[in-house]
Amino acid sequence: MKSEKITKLILLIASVIILLIFSGMAWSMVKGAIPAFGKFGFFGFIFSTEWNPTEDHEVYGAMPFIAGTLITSLLALIICFPLSFSTSLFIAEYFRKKRIAVVLGTLVDLLAGVPSIVYGLWGFYTIRPLIASLGFEGQGFGIFTSGLILAIMIIPYATSISNEIISMVPNELKEAAYSLGATRLEVITSVIIPNSRSGLVAGYILALGRALGETMAVTMLIGNANIIPKGLFSPGNSMASVIANQFGEADGLKLSALIAIGLLLFAVTALVNATGKMIIRKFA
């Protein structure tokens, strides 16, 4: 009995590690961000659009990066939705359990295995020239190119969750609709979608969470202009990518500003992911 108590204690102590990592992360980042927040004010830092590392004129504001992150991620979600939803219908409804669905599913899974930097390379050498040939300025760098690549990157996450949710819709409900003379499309729109709505929403929220934090591919494609993007094809910068880009030469106030951006990114992704997981848990 004594050994059982000790074992349980060890398990409990291990679990505390998660608490420690979590609070340690929050604490370290808040501490690192304090100089920046102190100098510019919390809201001043968030809403300022200026980013000027020139010595003695240092001004740091996070707005261009917040805007860049949100716009590219939402764009990615918009592009991702029709693609991944169709793919899920293909895999979990139309060709359910057929070999072709397994093949498609495996290929989609492979998308998840491609490292971010490889997406960046592919985007840089293949997609960017395509976009540039459309005649927009900026050699094809910018919001649209990044959003497009991000969309491809989050497709496997969105698809695997929707697959699961769609295949959970009870067969008897689909049969009920068919017995009333519904076509396949009508079964999809009036039985499958309503019955899997919250799960699908959660899936896309979690996919959004991934898009928000993606770094390398965006760094290589967004154009790294520290401005609020002026349009779909305008260059810009994202929170994750400014950290990766400017970290090398950062110290003092600039380092603090980058940590502050990291803290904001941490908070936003934690919120988005917690929301998504909560919906999924309620749903399942």
Partner: peptide, 21 residues
């Protein structure tokens, strides 16, 4: 089949009303 199933209705073993409606 759409036309046919309007002429021939069906009731299943387990009650299956649409839960979202």
């Amino acid at each position: 089949t759409t036309k046919l199933r309007r002429k021939i209705g069906m009731v299943f073993q387990r009650p299956n009303p649409f839960p979202t409606m």
